[in-house]
Design a binder for these strands. Structure first.
Length: 891
DNA sequence: TTGGTCACGTA
DNA sequence: CGTACGTGACCAAG
């Protein structure tokens, strides 16, 4: 249509490097073990840029070797950089192969950096009348190249989110125009290049001076006029500045011997693309290449460049009823994927999608009729899918909608498949399973709500909903392959519903108790601090391990404790040891201070986490713990102190809420040991549990060969430590250290144990062996944990994986069992029409709030469903406590 | 402002 | 040289 020319220049090295760290190295490798994460990330970014920016010309510049004219000028240039890991270096040649196949020119010049090539091409492109130059680089030095026609795209998150630096954006961010950016950088320095600047001068000061004196040259000329510490520092470090300025200037007049005709975007070399992508085992990415860069497809693909689906409609103007009728109500109705915009904007957008069609609504301006239709749909029986439905449920609830009938959650599915990944963002999943980028294209540019709610943002939301719909198909397949589908439908989704209610209900707390406790602890902290200062005659920061080490090991010359990465430990155990040895009063005061300040901190956190309704609403994380447990955040209510007196007083502040009669705690006693008895089938352990004997006395009697009533407290505590340690892969060394006995003694203790309870040893061995063979462990309910490190050459990693393999089936089965119990308790409460409710789950314990008059009934119900949650060959003992506060209801 | 380290609370 | 978590302080990077 026109002869407009737009040049895209990419700093290949810096973008590949960003990609390497943005994508998990483990997930991208060929069957032969070649790492490909950087190649994948780079290629994906490149295709996206070409599809979105539609350049007419493209070039990629690379560094060559490590020696350049800059390193000769200043031998320490980039001297602090670690050598790139081998996994990265081997990918650079592969990226060049990809570029060759795509017929994209890549350039390098000995003695120069990629930046210089970029600068040179940019300058001559502007001279020869290009309309536009785009520079994509992760090196801030390129900002000096920004002009009205040259924009730098700088990665802010991975390689998929790029910030557009126009002259205005540079000025806004750094306070200087682009041409003066290197002057600012010279003053500030660049640590990643090992170029120190002027200590005490940051971007703000630098920008101020440059503006005030009109450029760095004048700042230097009038250095004597600059007052203050910063001024003196500047005069002292003038050499640094001059050197930095010299080094960060990009050369723009290299002789590259390449004409712009050679940079024109051309149809790819199809044959070569197949060869290269076969070798890299990139399949979906290959389709994107052909969609983006292939001449044959380009005519039809021009309006939907890189997407395999068609956004048939997305609009605000009320096609909801029609959309639902078409997609959700006919006889082969699809499940509808739902997504909601980030909470940051004034406008709440909501997307509904099938795998091929999406509709985006503006919830903030929905016509009344539409609103009713949406409301009925969301709360009705039509099957829905989402990514993190619990979060969506909370958002919708705040907007006045009820969400029901969620039949699939892509976040949970991804968690069941990869329980070791701590995050399963939709963006990552779409990238991995659909090879598609559904990230907001430029999150940073959206300073204004207006921009955040731009067409691009709406499009992103539509694409996310479409991705969720497509992911369901892929993830369902994966779940079925791994026999995990029942965990999703029978366990995790019902638990998710319950967690929603628990989170929104919260637990009542007493502000008075918190306030009194805080004041008391605060006084203790101050007293302990004063005692500590008096004991050493100076006021140090008692919370700084570094300063403590100085005092303890240098000034006071105390014996060295266990090593940490950076010095010697000052943990409570070591400090007590030192106190026993030296009796120094500082240590006692320090320990007291540690204890009190920690408790004070907990109280403060809880106090400020209390909502207006006088209750604390934690968030239960259902997709982070690798074993299948829940975790709790904001605040964490699963680690409230339960041992010390002061800790227990914190539990006194958790109280029964208005309109309810009392709190109840229910917990499984020794559930992990019972699971071990069940899984191992050890007759001795099973007998202990069936007889209802005190487990540790029973085991102690066997191990020490005495009658049960002759087991001394010392014997009991030793076998107790051992029993628990076994489920964690405890070694004789660890046991000896914990019990303070010789390794030999610990060893013979373990031998005695295994002689009496031999099936336990067999079981533990089998678990690891089988996991090594299959690659994963399994709980009683089939929840898997993959442990590739079991075959690692690295002993430490291998042994760590072995311990995880021992523990995962036990901890995980316990997690499964209490989840089952929660579901059947919730069910029973609903069925019976009781108003009592679950508030918290703490791994083997539930906290409930009992409605007036329901105590007996609920207790019976809870006991029944907890004990009946799993059929083991030993009984599942449950103990119940009741009281006004969590402490009183505790055991 | 971020990320790593240390320390410490729970099951 | 015992598993699984989350939080907060400090401190050196950014």
């Amino acid at each position: 249509m026109s002869d407009m020319r737009r040049l895209l220049l990419i700093d290949g090295h810096s973008m590949a490097f960003r990609a390497f760290y943005a994508l998990p190295v483990d997930n991208f490798a060929t069957s032969t073990g070649q790492h490909t994460n950087a190649v994948h990330g780079f290629t994906s970014m490149l295709l996206k840029l070409i599809a979105e920016e539609k350049p007419t010309h493209v070039a990629v510049a690379f560094d060559v070797g490590s020696e350049t004219f800059r390193t000769r000028e200043y031998s320490d240039y980039k001297g602090t950089r670690d050598k790139a890991p081998e996994e990265f270096a081997s990918q650079i040649p592969l990226i060049k192969e990809v570029l060759d196949a795509l017929r994209i020119r890549h350039l390098e010049a000995p003695d120069f950096e990629a930046d210089d090539i970029v600068a040179t091409l940019k300058t001559s492109a502007e001279d020869s009348g290009f309309d536009d130059v785009l520079i994509c680089s992760g090196d801030r030095d390129t900002l000096q190249l920004v002009t009205d026609t040259t924009t730098v795209l700088y990665p802010t998150k991975g390689v998929s989110v790029l910030k557009r630096f126009t002259p205005g954006a540079v000025e806004e961010k750094y306070g200087v125009p682009p041409a003066r950016y290197p002057e600012l950088a010279a003053l500030v320095g660049e640590t990643s290049d090992n170029l120190p600047g002027v200590p005490g001068v940051g971007p703000k000061t630098a920008a101020k001076w440059i503006g005030q004196y009109d450029g760095l040259d004048n700042v230097i000329a009038r250095a004597d006029e600059i007052g203050g510490k910063a001024g003196q520092s500047f005069r002292d470090n003038l050499e640094n500045v001059l050197r930095n300025r010299k080094l960060n200037h990009l050369l723009a007049d290299m002789d590259l011997g390449v004409g712009f005709d050679e940079l024109i975007v051309e149809p790819v070399d199809r044959e070569a693309v197949h060869t290269v992508f076969d070798a890299l085992e990139f399949n979906t990415l290959r389709d994107r290449v052909f969609a983006t860069l292939d001449a044959d497809a380009s005519a039809s693909a021009s309006d939907k460049p890189d997407l395999s689906f068609d956004i048939a409609s997305w609009s605000d103007d009320g096609d909801l009823a029609a959309f639902l009728q078409t997609h959700a109500e006919d006889e082969n109705a699809q499940r509808i994927a739902l997504a909601i915009s980030e909470g940051a904007t004034d406008v709440d957008r909501f997307a509904l999608a099938t795998r091929s069609h999406a509709l985006v609504l503006n919830l903030s301006a929905l016509p009344e009729g539409e609103d009713a239709v949406l409301s009925a749909f969301l709360s009705g029986p039509a099957p829905k899918i989402a990514h993190d439905a619990k979060q969506l449920w909370h958002r919708l609830r705040a907007l006045g909608y009820e969400l029901d009938s969620v039949v699939f959650d892509t976040d949970i599915a991804a968690y069941l498949i990869h329980p070791d990944q701590r995050r399963h963002s939709l963006i990552d999943l779409a990238q991995r399973y659909l090879d598609r980028d559904v990230a907001a294209s430029d999150a940073e540019s959206g300073q204004l709500a207006f921009e955040l709610d731009s067409d691009a943002a709406i499009d992103t939301l539509a694409q996310q909903a479409l991705a969720i719909a497509e992911l369901e198909v892929q993830l369902t397949g994966e779940l079925e392959d791994r026999a995990l589908s029942h965990l999703m439908t029978k366990l995790e989704l019902p638990v998710q519903r319950i967690l929603q209610d628990m989170e929104s209900t919260g637990i009542a707390v007493s502000a008075t108790v918190f306030n009194e406790l805080f004041d008391e602890l605060d006084a203790d902290v101050k007293q302990a601090a004063a005692d500590a200062y008096a004991a050493i005659g100076e006021e140090i920061n008692l919370s700084s391990p570094k300063q403590l080490q100085r005092v303890l090991f240098e000034d006071l010359q105390m014996p060295k404790t266990k090593r940490t990465k950076t010095g010697w430990t000052t943990d409570a155990e070591a400090l007590s040891d030192l106190f026993d040895k030296t009796g120094h009063p500082f240590l006692a005061a320090l320990l007291a201070h540690r204890d009190r300040i920690k408790l004070r901190q907990i109280v403060e956190t809880l106090r400020s986490a209390t909502a207006d309704d006088g209750r604390i609403h934690t968030t239960f994380q259902q997709t982070v713990a690798a074993t299948g447990r829940l975790s709790s955040t904001d605040p964490n209510l699963q680690n409230i102190p339960a041992r010390s007196e002061a800790g227990l007083r914190i539990r006194e502040a958790f109280v029964v809420g208005e309109g309810f009669e009392t709190l109840m705690t229910v917990d499984y006693s020794q559930i992990e040991m019972r699971i071990m008895a069940h899984l191992s089938g050890d007759a001795g352990l099973i007998e202990a549990f069936r007889k209802g004997e005190d487990l540790h006395n029973f085991v102690g009697a066997r191990v020490f060969d005495v009658a049960i009533d002759e087991v001394t407290p010392q014997m009991r505590s030793r076998v107790k430590a051992m029993s628990y340690g076994l489920a964690y892969g405890l070694s004789s060394f660890g046991l000896s250290r914990q019990l303070g006995i010789e390794v030999g003694e610990a060893k013979s203790l373990m031998d005695e144990y295994f002689d009496r309870f031999g099936r336990v040893r067999d079981y533990l061995r089998t678990v690891v062996e089988q996991a090594r063979r299959t690659g994963f462990t399994e709980t009683m309910f089939g929840r898997r944990r993959y442990l590739p490190d079991l075959t690692s050459d690295n002993r430490q990693r291998r042994e760590m994986a072995e311990r995880a393999a021992l523990n995962a089936p036990i901890q995980g089965s316990a997690a499964d069992i209490i989840k089952v119990a929660m579901i059947s308790i919730d069910d029973a409460l609903t069925q019976t029409g009781l108003a009592s409710r679950m508030l918290l789950q703490v791994h083997d314990e539930l906290v409930l709030e009992i409605a007036p008059g329901e105590l007996e009934q609920v207790e019976a119900l809870v006991r029944e469903h907890m004990a009946g949650a799993a059929k083991l060959n030993v009984p599942l003992d449950v103990s119940v406590g009741v009281g006004e506060s969590w402490r009183a209801a505790g055991h």
